[in-house]
């Protein structure tokens, strides 16, 4: 697998990370090297093998439906870059 400049642009866009023009070359080279390592997986026969998504084979624990959280808005919003009237502010959201 070898990445094209467009691939990097597309990925950076999906991941919402600006990649500056002067970084793009280096990012691409390193991604190529990493996929050189990863691509070894393609040759392994995994027919009939169940994927393993979790380190332990456990069942989902369930919570009782009770309200336990208190209002901690002031504490949490003390960390926020921009708030007004209890709302987190962001540049205008277009639909």
């Amino acid at each position: 697998m070898s990445f094209s400049p467009d691939d990097v642009t597309r990925l950076a866009r999906l991941a919402r990370i600006d990649v500056a023009d002067d970084e793009a070359r280096d990012v691409r080279d390193k991604l190529d090297a990493i996929f050189g390592l990863i691509d070894a997986l393609q040759s392994i026969d995994t027919a009939g093998i169940e994927p393993m998504a979790h380190a332990q084979d456990v069942m989902m624990p369930l919570r009782d439906d009770v309200v336990t959280a208190e209002n901690r808005r002031e504490l949490y919003q003390a960390q926020a870059p921009a708030v007004a009237d209890g709302l987190y502010l962001v540049p205008k959201v277009l639909e």
């Binding site: 919570r63 439906d65 009770v66 309200v67 336990t68 959280a69 209002n71 901690r72 808005r73 949490y76 919003q77 009237d85 209890g86 709302l87 987190y88």
Partner: peptide, 29 residues
Amino acid sequence: STASKIFSGASTAFGAAPNTEASAVDIAL
């Protein structure tokens, strides 16, 4: 129609002041 949210213990009641029913889990700390 649950009392609390699907993955957190915050209330689902409608009409509360903004972000007062947004727990640590709901704001993804």
